[in-house]
Amino acid sequence: MSAQIFSRTANAYLRISLIVITLLVCGIIAALIGLYLSPWYTDAGVAKAQPIAFSHKHHIADLKIDCRYCHNTVERAATAGFPATETCMSCHSQVWTTSPLLQPVRDSYQNNTPIIWNRIYDLPAFVYFNHSIHIAKGVGCTTCHGQIQTMALTAKAQPLYMGWCLGCHRDPAQNIRPRDQVFNVDYDVLSMPLAERQQLVIDYQIPTDGRLTNCYTCHR
């Protein structure tokens, strides 16, 4: 009589380990998806360090400066534009002229070197986003950039997944607002009834025939 290779409980162990391994795999996949969607991976809501501790909150909520004062190409170019050092110095040649926090600005102005900001909204190189067309069609700054007037340190408000872009491109009415409210950071898109927003989509001639979801709309 030869010795048994497997003990009596081998079958039970096998079944239990099958269940455990299946659960483990599902758990790992779920955890990876969760990680992929979390701010840890997307950086949404995570402020980045910048060479100058610039506060959007102070300049917008306290000082009532329009977005365009600094991001002055936003209405006519693809990029909203980082403000030139000259733009900072328009005021800061006279206000806070000795502040050590603004030393990088003065250095940049005197030495003709750029201030290197850390990009917050960093799209992949194969995405061609154009600010001016969104502004012209009634998409407000805060729709993508969030409540910027509350951000002492600037952070991404959206994870920038493609599905989020497509959500609006499929149904622009959910995020549209009147053109004169585009730069109003306190405007609530939902304060306008859906029917009127749908009318805006027609008035602003936003194509709803599916052209907006074509690949080449954003990828070239």
Binding site: T79, G81, F82, P124, A125, F126
Partner: peptide, 10 residues
């Protein structure tokens, strides 16, 4: 593909 060998503005 995300960081291609080309320059965009800024």
């Amino acid at each position: 593909m995300y960081d291609q060998a080309k320059y965009k503005s800024n």
